[in-house]
Amino acid sequence: MTGNNHIQLDSNGRLKHFLTTEGLSRQLLVEILDNAESFAGVAHRAVKKVPLLRGKTIVNLFFEPSTRTSTTFDLAANRLSADVVNVNLATSSTSKGESLLDTLHTLEAMHTDMFVVRHSSSGAAHFIAGHVAPHVSVINAGDGQHAHPTQAMLDMFTIRRHKRSFETLTVAIVGDIMHSRVARSDIHALKTLGVNDVRVVGPKTLMPADIESLGVRVFDNLDNALQQVDVIIMLRLQKERMLSASIPSESEYFRRYGLTQTRLRLAKPDAIVMHPGPINRGIEIESSVADSNQSVILQQVSHGIAIRMAVMAMTLGSLSGSLAKNDENPDN
C-alpha cells in the first residue's frame, strides 16, 4: 500500500502539505513534536506572538462545523503573526465538487498561502492539495472518516509529555473506531513512533473491516483491553449511531464501553486518559474520570495550539530543521 507522501512532501523531503500521519517518517513526526515543544513556550510569554508567518495569509476553510479545532487553528495562526481568514461553509452531503473547486480558486485568488481544510468527505484535503497552486500549502483539519493529523500529533505530544518513551507503551483506543478519523491518525502516528501494543476496543458494529491490517489488536471487551494499559484514548460517540443500528442505546453502550473509575483501576496506576472532545459525560466517560487527575483532556486542547503552530510554520517553510535548539526558552 502506498501512502500519500508523494503529495505531502516536497522534492527535498520536507513537509509541504499535512494531510495524514500515514507514511510519514518517525524523524518527521519527532521534528513536529520538537517544534511544538518550543512553541508551547510562546503561550507563557507576556507577548504571545512570534513573527514567523508575518505577511502570510491563511484561510481556515471549514465545510463542517467545529469549535475547538477551528479556534485553535485560528489562535495558532495569529500567534505566528499570519493574517487569518475564517470561512465557514455549512454544507450538505449534496455539495458539488465543482463548487468546492470554484470556492477554492476564488479564495486562492486572494493570494492565500495556506488552506486549513475540514470537510465531511474522506480525501477532501487530498483533493484540494492536488488542485492548489504550487506555492500553497494545505493542512487537513479533518476529512470524513479518513484523517485528523493535527489531532493525532497533539495526542502524541500529550503522551510524550507524560511518558518516557513510546516503545514500551500500551495504548487503548476505545469506542467508535469505524467512524473515527482521530483513531486512524492516532494509530498511524503511534505505530510510526514505535508503540508496539495498540489496542482498539469496541463492538463489531463500530469496528471497521480488517483494522488489524494497520497493526492493531482488536478487543470487544473493555475490561480485557484495559489490562496494563498506559494510555487510554476515549472516542466520542455520535448520537446518530443508534439510528444506524450500531448500538442499542446510550445506557447499554456506557455499561459496556464507558470508562468508569472501577474500570480505570484495571489499567496501570499512572495511566492517562485522553479524549479528542467534546466529551459526552455518562455515555463514553464517567464525569469523575473526566475530571480526575489522570485525565489530560484539557492539556490536549492547549497542546493543540502548539502543534498547529509547528505544522503551519513547517509547511510554509519558515522553519529549517528543529526550532527547539535555538529557541530561547522552551517550556518544559
Binding site: 480525501g123 472518516q145 479518513h146 471497521p208 473491516a209 483494522i211
Partner: peptide, 15 residues
C-alpha cells in the same frame, strides 16, 4: 469494497 482499503481511506464500504 469493504476491507483494509476502505478502512485506511476512511471511505464508506460496500460489503
Amino acid at each position: 469494497n469493504e476491507g483494509a482499503f476502505s478502512t485506511r481511506l476512511g471511505l464508506p464500504p460496500i460489503p
